[in-house]
């Protein structure tokens, strides 16, 4: 997994690239969580993520819940069809902020 972060004002846009599995979840958290802890709105762009397993879904849930605690939000953008299917299988499409 590789990543790129753009910050503009109070918005941090995190682009993840590759396959998100148990092997990379700690790295994904290290990239995403500091922005949430800083109270930023995080835009998580998943257009280049073609595979995500339950570990990746856990990162999305944890990010969402952490953001609520910090009175901010995580918006998941440009989800690929294959990842959307996993999100829907987990019945999270109404819980997570998807755009």
């Amino acid at each position: 997994m590789s990543y790129k972060v753009n910050e503009e004002g109070n918005i941090a846009t995190v682009h993840l690239d590759g396959e998100i599995d148990m092997d990379v979840t700690e790295k994904a958290k290290e990239v995403i969580f500091p922005h949430i802890d800083a109270g930023k709105e995080v835009h998580l762009n998943l257009s280049n993520v073609q595979y995500m397993d339950s570990s990746g879904i856990s990162v999305l849930i944890e990010s969402h819940q952490k953001a609520l605690e910090k009175n901010t939000k995580v918006i998941i953008k440009d989800v690929s069809k294959s990842v959307l299917k996993v999100i829907m299988m987990a019945k999270l499409e109404q819980i997570l902020n998807l755009e």
């Binding site: 397993d53 339950s54 879904i57 856990s58 990162v59 849930i61 944890e62 819940q65 996993v86 299988m89 987990a90 019945k91 999270l92 819980i95």
Partner: peptide, 16 residues
């Protein structure tokens, strides 16, 4: 599945 929290989904996916 309605108790949204990290973890515990792998077996659910397999069964689905």
């Amino acid at each position: 599945i309605d108790n949204v929290k990290p973890g515990g989904l792998g077996t659910f996916f397999i069964q689905e």
